[in-house]
Amino acid sequence: MSLEQFKNRNVGTQNYKKLDLEHSPTCGWCQFKQVVSRTFKPELFVGLWVTLREMGNALFRGKMHTTQYPFEKLPISPRYRAIHDMLRLLESGHYRCIGCGLCEKICISNCISMDTRYDENQRKEVSEYTINFGRCIFCGYCAEVCPELAIVHGPRYETASEQRASFSLFEDMLTPIDKLNLQQEYDGFGAISSNADENIKKTPLAY
């Protein structure tokens, strides 16, 4: 199928398919007949039945749609880019960031600011690390560039708060040390969602 026929804007030359509609009645008697036939067609009762059936489905078969949002949340895709998390090494519990500065360098809105120094063992440690979430556009470059999988995007999308600073310090983003066993590995860009298999459907349009 070429694009040709979509570019043709001349009304009347396209291949429209007409719906098979009845003619509207012209005489009074025909109108009356139409009313009578529509009145005694059970369509109105089909409508009643459908709503009643859906009520039964919702109440007794667990097909209620409502998610009571602040108390229940829908799972979000692993590709979702929300407030960042800083991950820890699973073995030692030390933060993964090696202070290479790549994320700071690549950030296109220039909102990561970090500082490093040598600690007493002459190892590099991160002394400052903040993200200015007033500027972050959640592009995900920082997570993509990080060689240590240290900075990732977490699932925290509720970012209303009294202060931006509530999210943006290194300690806030770092996995709490007591929750280390719950730390989720970031699947990264292009990751498929965990229920992707269920979501596969045949394309409904047959062209």
């Binding site: 709503t51 009643l52 859906e54 009520m55 489905n57 919702a58 109440l59 097909k63 209620m64 749609h65 409502t66 009571q68």
Partner: peptide
């Protein structure tokens, strides 16, 4: 409530 159930919602909760 009834309208909500018929639309498979929960209504006031």
């Amino acid at each position: 409530k009834i309208l909500a159930f018929m639309q498979r919602r929960l209504g006031p909760m």
